[in-house]
Simulated scan of single mutants.
Amino acid sequence: MDDIDLQILELLKSNGRMTSSEISKIVHLSVPSITERIRKLENNGVIDQFTVKLNRKAIGQTLLVYIFVQLHGSVETQHFRTTIIQSPLVLECHHISGEYDYLLKVGLPDLSVLEGFITHTLKANHDIVRSNTVFILSTLKEE
Rank of each mutant, 00 (worst) to 15 (best):
S74V: 07
L63E: 07
R39V: 02
Q61N: 13
T62C: 03
I38T: 06
L64Q: 13
I67G: 01
L41T: 10
I84S: 00
S74D: 05
I67S: 02
R39D: 08
T77V: 11
Q61F: 12
G45F: 06
T77L: 04
E42Y: 13
D48P: 01
G60Y: 07
G45T: 10
R37L: 02
E36I: 06
T51Q: 13
L64G: 04
I84C: 02
N55M: 09
I67E: 06
L63S: 03
Y66A: 06
F80V: 05
I85C: 08
L71E: 00
K53L: 12
N44R: 13
A58K: 15
T77H: 05
H79R: 07
S87G: 09
G60E: 06
I85T: 13
N44K: 11
L54M: 12
E76A: 05
T83V: 03
S74Q: 05
Q70A: 11
I38L: 03
L41Y: 12
F80K: 02
S33D: 08
V46N: 07
N55R: 13
Q78I: 07
K53R: 15
N44G: 10
E42G: 07
K53T: 13
T51V: 15
I38E: 04
R39H: 09
K57L: 11
S74M: 04
T77R: 08
Q86C: 01
G73A: 03
I85F: 08
F80S: 01
R56F: 14
F80G: 02
S74L: 04
R81W: 02
A58S: 15
L64I: 12
A58R: 15
L63M: 13
F50S: 04
G73C: 01
N55G: 10
E76C: 04
Q78C: 01
I84R: 01
K40W: 07
T82M: 04
L63N: 04
Y66D: 11
R56V: 07
Q49T: 13
H79T: 04
Q49S: 15
L41H: 11
E76Y: 05
